[in-house]
Amino acid sequence: MNLEEEMAALVEEFKTTGLTQKTFSAQKGIGYPKFNYWYRKLRDEQSRGATGFMPVRTQGSSLSAETVEVVYPNGVKLRVPGGDLSLLSNLIKLY
């Protein structure tokens, strides 16, 4: 069993205990920062899929005449011309 599988099993066990992360990680002999990191990492992967990509919704059939809105997970919204795919690509890579 690799580290990710081991931590995933611990996170699933944690969810059934009703304990705080600090208490659970102390009982398992794991540092709280390490457990919290894996908890958040696995939660985020599950919420957006294992690939790390977010779905893109488009309105209309052509990007060239449309404005594209990029919404980052932290809530920041950017509106850019859809025809400028290079700019759009660079904005996505920023996150």
Rank of each mutant, 00 (worst) to 15 (best):
W38D: 03
Y39H: 14
E12H: 00
R48A: 09
F14A: 09
F53C: 13
A65K: 15
L78I: 13
M54G: 15
V68E: 04
P33E: 01
V80E: 12
S64K: 13
V80K: 15
Q59V: 09
K22I: 08
V56R: 06
D44F: 12
R40Y: 11
R48Q: 14
T23D: 11
T58C: 10
W38P: 05
K34W: 07
V11H: 06
E12K: 09
G31K: 09
V71Q: 13
T20R: 00
T51F: 00
R57N: 12
Y32I: 01
G75E: 00
G31T: 07
P81N: 14
S61E: 09
R48Y: 12
Y37H: 03
L42D: 01
T58I: 15
V76H: 05
L63H: 07
Q27P: 09
Y39F: 11
S62R: 03
Q59C: 03
S64N: 08
G49I: 05
T58Q: 07
L42T: 02
Y37I: 03
L42W: 01
V11M: 06
R57V: 10
K77V: 12
F35M: 01
S47H: 12
V70L: 08
T16N: 02
Y72G: 06
R40Q: 14
S64L: 04
E66N: 13
F35A: 05
R57T: 05
V76E: 09
G31H: 12
N36Y: 12
S62Q: 15
L78G: 04
V71T: 14
R40V: 14
R40F: 10
K41G: 05
E69Q: 10
S47G: 11
T51N: 11
P73F: 00
Q46V: 15
E13P: 01
Y37N: 09
E12R: 08
V11P: 04
T16K: 12
S47A: 12
G29Q: 10
R40L: 06
I30Y: 00
S47I: 08
E13K: 13
Y39V: 01
S62N: 14
P73T: 00
N74G: 11
V80A: 09
D44Q: 10
A26Q: 11
R79A: 08
K28V: 02
Y32P: 03
T51R: 01
P81Q: 04
F14W: 04
D44A: 15
G60N: 01
F53Q: 13
Y39A: 04
Y32G: 00
E66L: 13
K41P: 04
T23E: 13
T20A: 04
F35D: 10
R40I: 14
E69T: 15
T16E: 03
T51M: 09
E66H: 09
N36R: 14
L78E: 13
T58Y: 00
K15H: 09
T58D: 07
K28S: 02
